[in-house]
Amino acid sequence: MIDFQKSQVPVLRPGFRLQWEPIQNSHVLLYPEGMVKLNESAAQVLLLIDGERQIKGIIDSLSDRFPNVPGLDEDILAFIEVANAQHWIQVR
């Protein structure tokens, strides 16, 4: 388990692109070897990863959008850890 700091900035790895795919009716993460169909929660986090926003900013933005969701910050951190382990993102 990696202990990310909320001041760190996640970025999509080179070669990865997030986009809406009408045929899939969802956001997908495209990369040279394939595609990952994302659930809505994963897409909401990845849409905020712009290479400038800190993890804290992502958590704050989603907390504002989805108030009163218990454990939201832990869920976001867990997803960032998974996305990093899957090599979808890098955390700087």
Results as ranks from 00 to 15, higher is better:
1 M>C: 05
1 M>P: 14
1 M>H: 13
1 M>T: 03
2 I>F: 07
2 I>Y: 06
4 F>K: 08
5 Q>P: 05
5 Q>C: 11
5 Q>G: 10
6 K>S: 09
6 K>T: 15
7 S>M: 03
8 Q>P: 04
8 Q>G: 12
9 V>Y: 14
11 V>P: 05
12 L>M: 11
12 L>T: 14
12 L>S: 13
12 L>C: 11
13 R>Y: 13
13 R>K: 12
14 P>Y: 13
15 G>E: 01
15 G>M: 09
16 F>I: 09
17 R>N: 07
18 L>K: 13
19 Q>G: 12
20 W>D: 03
21 E>W: 11
21 E>K: 13
23 I>Y: 06
23 I>R: 15
24 Q>K: 14
24 Q>R: 10
26 S>W: 03
26 S>C: 08
27 H>V: 11
27 H>I: 13
28 V>Q: 02
29 L>E: 06
30 L>Y: 00
31 Y>P: 04
31 Y>M: 04
31 Y>W: 10
32 P>R: 09
32 P>T: 15
33 E>Y: 04
34 G>F: 05
35 M>A: 10
35 M>C: 04
35 M>S: 11
36 V>R: 15
38 L>H: 10
39 N>L: 00
39 N>G: 13
40 E>Y: 05
40 E>R: 14
43 A>H: 02
45 V>M: 11
46 L>W: 00
46 L>G: 02
46 L>Q: 02
47 L>H: 05
47 L>Q: 10
48 L>I: 13
49 I>T: 09
50 D>I: 14
51 G>W: 00
52 E>Y: 06
53 R>T: 14
55 I>K: 10
55 I>H: 03
55 I>C: 03
55 I>T: 01
56 K>P: 00
56 K>D: 04
59 I>L: 02
59 I>T: 05
59 I>H: 09
63 S>W: 10
64 D>N: 06
65 R>Y: 07
65 R>G: 06
66 F>G: 02
68 N>L: 06
68 N>K: 12
68 N>C: 08
69 V>I: 13
69 V>P: 03
70 P>S: 11
70 P>V: 15
70 P>G: 07
71 G>M: 09
71 G>V: 05
71 G>A: 11
71 G>K: 10
72 L>M: 08
73 D>Y: 03
74 E>T: 11
74 E>P: 09
75 D>T: 14
75 D>K: 07
76 I>S: 05
77 L>W: 14
77 L>S: 15
78 A>W: 14
79 F>W: 12
79 F>C: 12
80 I>P: 12
80 I>F: 12
80 I>Y: 08
80 I>R: 14
81 E>N: 15
83 A>F: 05
84 N>H: 11
84 N>I: 08
84 N>F: 15
86 Q>R: 08
86 Q>Y: 08
87 H>E: 00
87 H>L: 03
88 W>A: 00
88 W>L: 02
89 I>N: 01
89 I>C: 04
90 Q>R: 02
91 V>Y: 01
91 V>E: 00
91 V>T: 00
92 R>C: 10
